[in-house]
Amino acid sequence: MQRRTFLKTTAAAVTATAFTGLGPAFALDNVVKEAGECKIQWSKQTTSICAFCSVGCGLVVHANKSTGRVVNVEGNSDHPINRGSLCAKGASSIQMTVNADRPTKCMYRAPYSDSFEVKDWEWCKKRIAKLIKKSRDESFEKKNADGNVVNRTMGIASLGSAALDNEECYAMHSFMRSLGLVYVEHQARI
């Protein structure tokens, strides 16, 4: 079927979801204030790559020179792929980082508890390392059922992540394999 015939024979689409309006978290006076901070003389620019899909659009990130905090993220007009343009997600990138709902502390939920409690990283690190060691030591198989050497940890699964940078992926691979994990999977599988 040709596109034209399709359009002729069907009614108009129901949901035109135009990208309209700004959320309540973005009152107009804030816009004016932040626009001022975006002036190049007040901000430091760094480049980045959109953290959503794999087109890999280039971004320019502006941080306020005096506070060091990010005030704007926009498309990089020099970038050969996107030439400055971004889709709705890429254009909203700043909300991924500058967002009041982002937790800034480690949280811990004890077995059978009905809530998280804030804990510091040092405490979590010690506790998690202990748990990893216990699970590993208890489930480590030196040989499989056929008597072949396998040197693997059967009691821990690792899931993730395509959200990591390449260097972090390499670090994660090295770490997980050094622990003897064989159940190592992530988004690419699913």
């Binding site: 953290a51 980082t97 502390k105 480690c106 077995p111 998280f116 940078d165 390449n166």
Partner: peptide, 25 residues
């Protein structure tokens, strides 16, 4: 929750613009 044993940790991580590193498109 009272019948779920799993000891759970949530660790908050830095966003893509709070660290350096590479991604492959």
């Amino acid at each position: 929750p009272k019948s779920v044993k799993t000891e759970t940790f949530f660790l908050p991580c830095a966003s893509a613009i709070e660290k350096e590193g590479s991604v492959s498109n």
